[in-house]
């Protein structure tokens, strides 16, 4: 075989591999580009348009959506006054999502650690117990929570039957209810990555820690927690991001009174019929998420470098 023929064979093999790759990747990438990424572009465009009377948009350029986020236009003289209402919703959402993140971490870490230190056979079963709610419909889980914490719900009735309280605790439709709901919903999202990290932990290191005179708390904070850091970071991101965009939990447990960003955006596309403002709010939410993801990517990268 001459050199020319061989290089032709090389070129042919390379071209065939490239074609196969393109053909195989094509459908998945195309579907997501068209149905998930292109719409984000449309949203950017919509956020600079004027709301249509019956929903949708009118094709007139406007920055009103972004102005409306912080200011209110006086109906009579058209002057702008600072309006913190929407900003408050954003801040409350961030606060609730952050609180849920800390809450799930405090509950999830001991749980994941407990499972990871079980004998292998039992671990699978415990993991199954955690995974099951993870794949159970969030709407139904939230509804179940609503049944429990209602004024005439399971908890209040039990407590009253036991004569611990005389009047039902009014939890439903408060920030507390939303907070509890978020923790309940996203707890498995925290436990699973934590478990993945703790399962790989070499417990001889724990023994070494004790051997070197560390107390339980010192071993936990100086040996186990640093080694489980990738899992802690992943779990926090997995709880914070969906928590920030939560819709169902505040909708059912906040009773539409205690809004979070998700509900506010949905309302703009529903009863408020202000698509540009809804689009702008969604983009601001996305910007928040991208910032969190970038911080995460940097933290994960540092982690990988430190251990690489």
């Amino acid at each position: 075989m001459s050199g020319a023929q061989l290089s032709a064979a090389h070129a042919e093999a390379g071209r065939r591999a490239r074609n196969a790759r393109l053909g195989l990747l094509g459908p998945a990438v195309l579907i997501i580009l068209l149905i998930s990424i292109l719409p984000l572009g449309i949203t950017v465009v919509y956020s600079f348009l004027t709301p249509g009377t019956y929903g949708g948009v009118t094709w007139e350029f406007s920055t009103a959506a972004y102005v409306q986020f912080l200011f209110e236009e006086d109906i009579f003289d058209g002057t702008l006054a600072f309006n913190p209402a929407y900003l408050q919703i954003f801040l409350r959402s961030i606060g609730l999502a952050f609180g849920a993140m800390i809450g799930t971490l405090i509950l999830g870490f001991p749980t994941a650690y407990f499972i990871a230190t079980k004998p292998r056979q039992q671990r699978t079963f415990w993991l199954f117990l955690i995974t099951l709610p993870f794949w159970t419909n969030i709407l139904i889980r939230t509804y179940a929570m609503l049944l429990i914490i209602r004024d005439e719900g399971f908890i209040n009735l039990t407590l009253m039957n036991l004569r611990i309280i005389n009047h039902p605790l009014s939890i439903l439709y408060t920030d507390t209810a939303v907070f509890i709901g978020l923790i309940y919903t996203y707890l498995p999202f925290m436990v699973l990555p934590l478990y993945a990290s703790l399962e790989k932990l070499d417990f001889r290191l724990v023994e070494a820690g004790y051997d070197l005179y560390a107390s339980r708390w010192k071993v936990l904070s100086h040996v186990i927690a640093p080694l489980a850091k990738p899992g802690i970071i992943a779990g926090c991101v997995l709880v914070f991001i969906p928590g920030l965009g939560a819709y169902i939990t505040p909708e059912l447990l906040g009773g539409g009174k205690k809004l979070m960003i998700g509900n506010m955006i949905a309302i703009q596309f529903g009863s408020s019929r202000n698509w540009p403002f809804g689009s702008a709010a969604a983009l601001i939410l996305m910007a928040l998420v991208v910032i969190v993801l970038l911080v995460y990517a940097r933290a994960a990268g540092r982690e990988a470098k430190a251990h690489g």
Partner: peptide
């Protein structure tokens, strides 16, 4: 390619939802 395929997981569902609604209403129109 991985980033594109995993993109729907990285964005809050509500954002994907209203974005998809915007695109589809445009296409329908």
């Amino acid at each position: 390619a991985y980033a594109i395929i995993n993109q729907p997981l990285m964005i809050p569902e509500i954002v994907t939802a209203i974005a998809t609604l915007s695109l589809f209403s445009l296409v329908k129109y």
